[in-house]
Design a protein around this nucleic acid. Structure first.
Lengths: 142, 142, 142, 142
DNA sequence: GTGGTCTAGACCACT
DNA sequence: GTGGTCTAGACCACG
């Protein structure tokens, strides 16, 4: 898991998304401490300020809580809301793809085919088959 | 059809995507003239410079051709390549959604459900059923 | 002989240069009439207004003289000054090339070699040898 | 070294040429950082946007690489290709001069004389002799 | 401090 | 009217 500096999405938001999905996935549980700002900065090869901002925004969202000199902790309802937020984000991407396809007169079956290809391409666990031939598309208008 | 100024995607790229899908959809055909820079600027309530830049990049991509004092025209192979480029963009969005979902331990069936919901939500004509309550998610990390 | 619409040099100036060298070369002599605006426009596939402007500027330069309803004529001293103007223009190009080369630390012998190559490449009459492999360079900063 | 705002060559291209020859001359080496956009804008008394555009185009050419918040850096193969690009630009100027001269029926010896004069006029160090009275010709049709 | 995008408004070349 | 370049000045993301 790493960041895409060429994406239009600010790095600090990518880090936010990373933490959010981490919570949604149960990697970080309610009350647990998150990796320190500095550790995260080193891991992503990024300026600590940037991580700092990500954590700050997450705190504003109520997902985490920072305590001076202690670190950042997942809040009680952060654990539950993260899952919903992630699902919403996922849907947003699908919606954007669908919208774009519709604009180009793609029919439902065609869109479905494209989606199933991605599902297999990025297969992880259950029905894993296809090799991951996915490559980022600089063209993608978010 | 309008732009999202709050998106992290530069406005000029959104305009590029718009033209691209317009060509892919057959709204603009090979050899046909595109709306002028100024007209497009008015339509999207955007500065002419921004449209100018979009057209310029599209020209560099070989999709369109501009002639001083005449206007911008869809090139012959622009008409064909636009379709492929749009499909790639669509897949990129699906891929990103899938990636995000996978990170949060969503299973294939769950992702599929989310996708089918979008497909129906944004339904245009044919199998239209549930209109649903889709709204853009400013949180979406592209 | 034709125009380069992709050049940064305005078309009307290219036409001016064409007339100027035509006079310098003795194709158009003092007192002789020049091709009409419309004829020139057709020949170069250009808007008559553009030719009109070229002729107008040439008149301001004193190289030609236009008489309503008659046409444009080479003036007496136009015939002599054109040659000088052309020579100056030629030198200006050489100077720009030399300047650019110097900036990149090219030595005199190297510059000379490049020049001799061009001289042979564009060979026309006297010591004609090499085939014309010259191609326009969009990079050229005038 | 300064820009010619009266030239028909866009300022941003003049800046590109300047950087290119700088790289070709070894003033900027592979991996080294270039002057910042704002610094260059001040140096050339030009709007930062204009420099920004020049750098952006150079990046597209692969000559340089920019990193947000860091600066612009000369790429590895930028260092080598710049030299070739500059040589091409130099030849283009010589070619244009030759072409113009040929059109006016100048013979090779005459063209050669004009060139040698420029070579001496713009002499830098080695065989410097006649300083001469060279001045830029705004008339020069690139 | 760095690069990157956008607006407002200007002037030029060309049809 | 068209596209193309430039300025002035603003705001954002990153270090």
């Amino acid at each position: 898991m790493c960041l895409d500096v060429n994406s239009h999405v600010p790095v600090y938001e990518q880090i936010m998304a990373h933490v959010r999905t981490g919570i949604a996935a149960g990697i970080y549980r309610a009350g647990e401490i998150l990796p320190s700002v500095r550790a995260t900065a080193l891991r992503f090869v990024v300026n600590p300020n940037t991580v700092q901002r990500a954590y700050q925004e997450l705190e504003r969202e109520g997902l985490i809580e920072t305590r001076k000199g202690r670190g950042a902790f997942v809040t009680a309802d952060g654990a539950v809301s993260a899952l919903g937020k992630t699902a919403t984000a996922v849907r947003a991407h699908f919606a954007e793809g669908v919208r774009l396809g519709r604009a180009a007169r793609f029919k439902n079956p065609e869109l479905n085919t494209l989606f199933q290809q991605e599902l297999r391409a990025n297969a992880a666990a259950s029905p894993a088959r296809a090799p991951s031939d996915r490559s980022t598309d600089p063209d993608s208008p978010a």
